[in-house]
Design a protein around this nucleic acid. Structure first.
Lengths: 232, 232
DNA sequence: CGCAGCCTTGACAAATGTCAACAAACGTGG
DNA sequence: CCACGTTTGTTGACATTTGTCAAGGCTGCG
């Protein structure tokens, strides 16, 4: 593994505090691979043989049932996924596929569990990571149960806007059909939802979004830190 | 604290493996209290001062936004809640209220965090617990995004039936309005959903449910271990 | 250029929510 | 134990939201 990537992984909250010896031991069994777009990395129901770390590119976590499917989340560099399944040695609840050309590190789940038992700093870091993940999903569930699709879109746009700080415009990172799925609606409904937000100053041009008056949109969206803030 | 309760708590997966010394230390700062029904134990947005353990009775976790509210989960004895907020020392994402007369143990969050740093068995148990919680919410989210309300109800009934093993009947544990909220629909919609399941042999009499032909209901509900099994 | 996939739009259908009325169940105080 | 009022559950009529299907436009790419 190239030094730069080794250091990128070491810098992750999950690994930064653990003993050198244990980190090295984890990395010995790990390997890094380049995947083209649209490759399925894991399948729901399958055992989770590897903890995955996205080094570059992006990964879609999705699920299927009875012929329907839905995007659950997007994983961006540098972060991990399938941590919970790895720890519990349980089947994956979600499938994962690359959205674009991506570089992924794979650490054998068995190694993760072994080091988890040996290194309490690592165990503690995993707790923090899992607590974070748990709270993110709770927020997503509140978003789904308490808001209409129009409200979800409005708040999503405001969250994206916060990342592009200062600017009143930003780019949608991915296809609208996938955004629709993430927000729990159909592409057609998303198309109409964008139009429904025009009165609040939202303009769409392809994947380019402009928000004329953030305060106006906020009056409609009523963003709430207990649903929309990533950090808390 | 009565010995019986002390032992009940000790038997929880979360505490069973930790050092005696640390468990005793945790319990020293803890106290147990009886609450009547409908008491709000925690409020979303407030700091989480105590890890809560339901010893008897039951607790509703719910959230509000913009005048709407929704039940997120029910906590039954003997188990804990607000673990993630306690560990992260972050505000609660959900409010909690007793559904009936309940006995609750409260452990100061600061003590939990202190012992968490001292006792790696405890830290590991917390990881397992959090991973379990995380996976439960993911399942709930898949249920919400992939199924209609009729399908959610059908699968809910089948899950309950599995607990009352053998029998073709069981009691709804709580009010229908709350079940509706848990399932993400209105009470009126739930009422009609029950009627919609009559063709599949579901009969309702007050809070008493009878399922004539489990196999028939399953053909409609298509239960899936990756959504409906509690253990995996 | 032509194909394939995505986005949009319109017309329509299905699912779900809202409101109002009433019935049934529950709890309380006489 | 009963009478009363409150809450919960049910039902009907209707509105809103969301999904489905089909068609057409746009875009990117071989």
């Amino acid at each position: 593994m190239p030094d730069a990537e080794y250091r990128d992984i070491r810098k992750l909250d999950l690994f930064s505090q653990m003993a050198d010896e244990h980190f090295t031991s984890l990395m010995r069994g790990a390997y890094v691979q380049n995947f083209p777009a649209q490759i399925e990395l894991t399948t729901e129901g399958e055992p989770s043989d590897f903890l995955h770390i996205v080094l570059s590119g992006s990964v879609d976590l999705f699920s299927e049932w009875n012929g329907r499917d839905t995007s659950m989340a997007t994983v961006r560099p540098v972060s991990t996924f399938i941590l919970a399944a790895t720890i519990k040695d349980a089947p994956n609840l979600m499938s994962a596929r690359t959205l674009e050309k991506s570089r992924i590190a794979l650490i054998p789940s068995q190694d993760v569990r072994t080091i988890f038992d040996l290194d309490s700093s690592f165990a503690r870091a995993i707790v923090t990571e899992l607590a974070q993940c748990y709270r993110s999903v709770i927020k997503a569930q509140k978003d789904l149960k308490l808001r209409t699709s129009l409200e979800r879109l409005a708040n999503y746009l405001l969250r994206q806007l916060k990342h592009a700080d200062g600017s009143a415009t930003f780019e949608l990172g991915f296809e609208k059909r996938r955004l629709a799925s993430v927000l729990g609606m159909t592409p057609e409904n998303l198309s109409r939802a964008f139009k429904g937000l025009q009165p609040y100053g939202v303009a769409v041009n392809g994947t380019h979004i402009t928000i004329d008056d953030q305060a106006d949109l906020e009056r409609f969206a009523k963003p709430n830190p207990l649903i929309d803030d990533f950090s808390t």
